[in-house]
Design a binder for these strands. Structure first.
Lengths: 144, 144
DNA sequence: ACTAAATAGGATATAATTGTCCGATTTAGG
DNA sequence: CCTAAATCGGACAATTATATCCTATTTAGT
């Protein structure tokens, strides 16, 4: 569904959000350990999220990553996915046709529209706050 | 969503089904041309579909690919997807966690279950016959 | 000023996917 | 029997995704 990069990105952002809610800034090392991802690759993804103003990064000693508290409620999964994988999940034909649309639909066009819309809505309506609080309450998990 | 291989596979099978319904066997060359895919790569995919008893292949002059007429109704997209991409679309966690399940769900587990189920049902309920007749009636398209 | 800890970013390595090429084999027809 | 047309299958090539490594820069604390 998503690329590995995107999976790590969502997991990273969720972990950062959880800790930002508790006032803690977290380091790359800690993030990678806690979400069980390759450190250097995760670094690249965090750079990307930082450039897209999804997370804030602080260099130097006691540096790390955090997310502005007021932002956590507003940040939706769709923005993270978009920053990393672009819009290819929602857009484009299920069978890979370049010019597939309602006028000249591929044989599964209509059926895909529904599923893709559900996915899009889900990502657009799920906030990092919701992700993080699920973790906080021990209802959900990020590892393994 | 699907791999390129899988996209070509579905388009190939659909084109073969359409022609089998009309009693014509079609060659690799024709298939690749009509579904707009790389010839040699498509050959590999057709080999795979043949080994999985999804299409029948006939070697030699006047050879090519076809699908048993009685099979066209029963062959579902899910079988093609499964032969090429396996079950990774339905199975496995949206965030890439190995041990994500209802007991220890990731933060989007429940939301993904619904979407994945819809996708699975759609693939399990869409027959090649349905794909092909949409083409036949000019309602849907396979090219571009 | 120095040091340690941290991110930034470029270069490189590895793996998976996508794609090509070519010789072997099969088969219908002349 | 020969030829042309076709699939089969193995080897290879190119591209993209994933992952690593190293150096530069920044920053807090001493």
């Amino acid at each position: 569904m998503f690329s590995k990069a995107c999976e790590y990105g969502i997991r990273s952002a969720t972990y950062i959000a959880l800790n930002s809610l508790e006032g803690r800034r977290v380091s790359l090392k800690e993030i990678a350990k806690e979400i069980d991802s390759p450190v250097a690759f995760t670094a690249k993804i965090l750079q990307l999220l930082s450039k897209n103003n999804i997370v804030d990064s602080v260099k130097g000693a006691y540096g790390g990553f955090d997310i502005n508290r007021t932002k956590i409620d507003k940040l939706m999964l769709s923005e993270i996915v978009n920053a990393i994988d672009g819009d290819k999940i929602y857009v484009g034909c299920g069978l890979g046709l370049k010019e597939c649309n309602a006028d000249k639909p591929c044989p599964v066009h209509e059926k895909f529209v529904g599923i893709r819309n559900d996915l899009r809505k889900m990502l657009e309506n799920t906030s990092l706050y919701e992700m993080a609080t699920g973790l906080e309450m021990g209802l959900t998990y990020l590892k393994r």
